[in-house]
Amino acid sequence: RFHMYATGITPAMVNPTVGSGTQYIAGLRDSDGNPFDGAKTYKVHLPPNVPANQFWAFTLYNVQTRSMLQTDQRFPEITSADASIEQNTDGSYDVYFGPEAPAGKEKNWVQTIPGKGWHMLFRLYGPEQAWFDKTWRPSEVELVK
């Protein structure tokens, strides 16, 4: 199944090694079980202490082409490696996906396109133990409007 997203796989992508490699979650539907709609806005909450000793990222893909979603943004992605992303006071993050950024959330937003289906990959680079023992997990993707 992973070949849906990748044209090649290395051991670092699929072996569960604490502190190195990469771990992935595919997001295909919202918390109500509906496919993502490019005309709607969604939110995911990342609790404090995201277990990535390098960084984390969400990347959006077109459901028909498997390519990154083409938008007005340079990349259809948000990552903790970007110094402009805004962290909540408790160390958590709220990330938004939709055709327009919610007011005041522009730095934590990835654009979607009305009429285009999309799905996402959430990646942890250098995943830490809390990821593997499941003591940390992101929220479900909630429909905002």
Rank of each mutant, 00 (worst) to 15 (best):
R1W: 08
R1H: 05
F2L: 11
M4H: 11
Y5I: 01
G8Q: 13
T10R: 09
T10K: 13
M13W: 13
V18Y: 04
V18I: 14
G19I: 04
G19E: 08
S20W: 05
G21F: 04
G21N: 09
G21Q: 07
T22M: 13
T22I: 11
Q23P: 02
G27Y: 15
S31Q: 03
D32V: 05
G33Y: 03
G33F: 01
F36V: 09
F36M: 08
D37K: 02
G38W: 01
G38Q: 03
A39W: 01
A39Y: 00
K40L: 15
V44T: 02
V44S: 02
P48Y: 09
P48C: 12
V50R: 02
P51T: 01
A52E: 04
A52G: 10
N53I: 08
Q54D: 12
Q54I: 15
Q54T: 12
W56I: 01
F58R: 00
V63N: 09
Q64P: 00
M68T: 14
L69S: 07
Q70A: 12
Q70F: 01
R74Q: 11
P76Y: 01
E77S: 12
I78C: 11
T79V: 07
A81C: 01
D82K: 11
A83I: 10
S84N: 15
S84G: 02
E86V: 13
Q87D: 02
Q87A: 11
N88S: 15
T89Q: 14
D90P: 13
Y93T: 07
D94I: 07
Y96N: 02
Y96T: 00
F97I: 03
E100K: 15
G104T: 08
K105A: 05
K107G: 03
K107H: 13
W109L: 07
V110D: 01
Q111A: 14
Q111T: 06
T112L: 13
I113H: 05
I113G: 03
P114W: 09
G115Q: 13
G115E: 09
K116I: 05
G117V: 07
F122Q: 06
Q129K: 14
A130M: 07
W131K: 06
W131S: 05
W131Y: 14
F132K: 08
F132L: 06
K134L: 03
T135R: 08
P138C: 00
V141Y: 06
E142V: 14
L143P: 01
V144I: 15
V144H: 04
